[in-house]
Design a protein around this nucleic acid. Structure first.
Lengths: 211, 211
DNA sequence: GTTCTCGTATGATGTTGATCATGCGAAAGC
DNA sequence: GCTTTCGCATGATCAACATCATACGAGAAC
């Protein structure tokens, strides 16, 4: 029934899925071959039928993680203003659900520090995926055309705030403090997205009260 | 001349210095005991006279990195507006010099993703140091009193943008793109810091031209 | 100056992990 | 149906690494 090439393809998919999860949960150096293969229902020996070395897995799994997640995040094309788009994406990104689901989270944030320490090969992959995500944020699916520069700048600042915000929120131990970080960053995106005194629906109101 | 306790203290200082560098350059799991001890001019066996295990070194070296860097960054107390302070700090943080000097950089950024994956013990340490840095940004040296809440929120968003920005700038391979990330984030801090249409000196002008 | 203390060095141990050589068994080709 | 192919499993090898037991040797205490 299932030809060997189909089998291999399915195995590769399982390896990539497992690798993408472990990569985000345990980092570049943490995601070891044997556990990934075990997650995929295979033994460590089979690994080298699919990749030449661990670095290749890291690059492929990183790509896979974003290939898998990006469409889910961007959703269908819809009518929305540019600030409204950033607000909507930021609200979902800087959320507790995303913060707590590290293994299925945005790989750009989960591996930011790791990529900063990595070899140029992995940085190249990281850069490509970041560019694709920025393009997706800007809603410019046409890869041939350049992105509108003003929007690209907005998207870069947006991504930096998102990556930094969720990283800090994950790195602290106190859940109250962690939520505060997420909330403040969402509000910062609002201020960043709405150029001036425009009133926006669903505006989060800063609350400095004690209760 | 040098008593044994003086010797041990000096050794500990060298271990912490080396550990703090390697921690930032190679991450939580990358900074191994033997290389750190070698950097400190000792052999691996001496390690356990100073720490019970590797986790203790990580926590102590992380603290040391920030204890060492924070005063250098904040500088002397000076007269400056709150937006002016954020602008000044952001300009220095989101700079190529800081981006390229990973081993002596801000540990909060260098280890953000690592801390996100770490055990609660390290997260607690990370959180304490983050709180101290936020307090320092807010220029409230009195540890007893709470920080002005509005300033704290500003400082949190500021830190998130700084951490995310420099992490992204380090993670990409193309130096032009990397500089663009830094520039855009500095501009975002300007917009974030100046509430409305206030004119500020030394404003960076966005440049979307091709030349 | 003899003994004790303790900071450090040497060396061992057990573990983890990357990589590869080899072999099995089922599908593919004839 | 026989042979070949090849995806996968088993097992070995080698290196890195955390941890600990033991020993040395110089300062400290008397």
């Amino acid at each position: 029934m299932t030809s060997r090439s189909d089998l291999k393809e399915a195995s590769l998919r399982r390896i990539l899925t497992a690798g993408a999860s472990r990569l985000r949960a345990e980092g570049l150096s943490g995601a070891a071959i044997a556990p990934v293969m075990q997650d995929a229902g295979l033994t460590h020996g089979a690994f080298y039928a699919h990749f030449n070395n661990k670095d290749e897995l890291a690059a492929a799994a990183f790509r896979f993680a974003l290939l898998d997640n990006r469409p889910r995040w961007m959703g269908q094309a819809r009518k929305e203003s540019w600030p409204g788009r950033l607000l909507r994406l930021g609200k979902r990104y800087l959320a507790m659900a995303h913060r707590d689901d590290l293994a299925d989270s945005c790989a750009l944030a989960a591996l930011a520090s790791d990529a900063a320490r990595s070899n140029p090969g992995f940085k190249k992959v990281y850069e490509e995926e970041l560019r694709k995500s920025l393009r997706a944020i800007c809603n410019s699916p046409d890869e041939g055309r350049p992105i509108d520069p003003a929007r690209l700048d907005d998207a870069i600042a947006f991504m930096a705030l998102c990556v930094g915000g969720i990283s800090l929120a994950r790195a602290v131990d106190d859940p109250v403090f962690s939520e505060q970080i997420l909330t403040v960053c969402r509000q910062a995106i609002q201020r960043m997205a709405t150029p001036d005194n425009e009133s926006t629906s669903n505006v989060e109101v800063p609350d400095h009260g004690k209760g």
